[in-house]
């Protein structure tokens, strides 16, 4: 693996390898001294063309826990806002001897473009509506911890099924909401289906990308068919501007048809796991009660944050492997 640009272009073995490695890093995150010297003297640059506190912080912590130097290039403060091309920016960062570049960008494919212009490993931290691979990997890890290991704190040895330790073949995952604009939905569709899970997509037609059925997902036309028998429900954030751009009549109707509530969760399995990549619009795509874990529905928010750091440490570890000499 040279770069991590998309899950679609990452084969199943590599997905397993990242998850396997992340499980090892979860242990380090429980230590009083969360630091290993692995990447000492190396630098990770986070190049964010969109604001994102959570993902950026997660990558920076991952780098720092491995003793790498993490430098953030905030777009507003850099020459990017003066119209510098991505190519020129990448060449400059490479000349500054970056050892890994983590990029988030509003244009789909920006990470692919970046990877063309530099020999340094590039990690896609979200590009347009294309993919957000590390989010899918951390979601997969969280689902595995809940549904395979069964323990919320991960103290389980990986050797459950040594041949296929992260097999999710027994699970049905429903992804609900604005699928057309969601990079998380795309990355998760590839990641979870490669691990064997059945993935359902459900949302209003106006928020469904063209020929979605050609992806490894089952497209559902109503919430009930999506949630029936589901082990995991992944709720996507609804950008309220979708209503303004004419894709939805009203948030009220959206909430009534597609909002995940205790009532709609009755269609799912009793031990259903509800996930949300955040930040949540309570009362729109998810009811406040479900969001806050009221009534025994398990919330994964904190665990997802920890897994996020572990997965990103794993990606940095695996991609920054070469000696560079």
């Amino acid at each position: 693996m040279r770069d991590l640009l998309s899950i679609r272009e990452t084969d199943t073995d590599q997905i397993h390898q990242v998850l396997q490695t992340a499980v090892g890093f979860n242990e380090i995150l429980k230590r009083p001294v969360k630091k290993v010297p692995t990447l000492r003297g190396r630098s990770v640059i986070t190049l964010f063309y969109e604001s994102s506190t959570r993902t950026r912080t997660s990558f920076e912590l991952a780098a720092k826990y491995m003793s790498a130097d993490a430098v953030n290039i905030a777009v507003a403060q850099s020459s990017v806002s003066k119209g510098e091309s991505l190519k020129d920016t990448l060449k400059t960062l490479e000349a500054l001897t970056a050892d890994c570049i983590v990029i988030r960008h509003p244009s789909s494919g920006a990470a692919h473009l970046a990877a063309q212009f530099t020999s340094v490993p590039v990690i896609n931290a979200g590009d347009g509506r294309h993919e957000h691979p590390t989010q899918a990997l951390l979601d997969a890890l969280t689902i595995w911890q809940h549904k395979v290991v069964g323990a919320e704190d991960d103290t389980y040895p990986v050797a459950l099924r040594p041949d296929k330790p992260f097999d999710l073949a027994h699970l049905t995952v429903a992804i609900v909401g604005d699928l057309a604009h969601s990079r998380v939905a795309r990355s998760n569709a590839w990641c979870l289906s490669r691990l064997g899970a059945t993935v359902r997509w459900a949302g209003p037609r106006t928020l469904l990308p063209a020929e979605a059925h050609q992806l490894p997902v089952t497209v559902c036309d109503d919430l009930e068919s999506a949630l029936t028998g589901a082990d995991v429900v992944m709720v996507l954030r609804l950008q309220t501007e979708r209503q303004e751009s004419g894709l939805l009549p009203s948030l009220r109707e959206y909430s009534r048809l597609w909002g995940v509530t205790h009532t709609s969760l009755r269609w799912a399995k009793p031990d259903v796991l509800v996930m949300h990549p955040g930040p949540m619009n309570r009362g729109v795509e998810i009811s406040a009660e479900v969001a806050d874990g009221v009534g025994g529905v398990r919330s994964t928010v904190e665990q997802q944050v920890t897994n996020g750091v572990a997965v990103r440490m794993a990606c940095l570890y695996l991609l920054m492997g070469g000696s560079g000499e």
Binding site: G109, D127, G128, H130, P209, A210, L215
Partner: peptide
């Protein structure tokens, strides 16, 4: 072009 490839690539389509 709007279709499978555009959907996979996360690009807005031209129908």
């Amino acid at each position: 072009n709007e279709g499978r490839t555009a959907t996979m690539m996360g690009l807005p389509g031209i129908p």
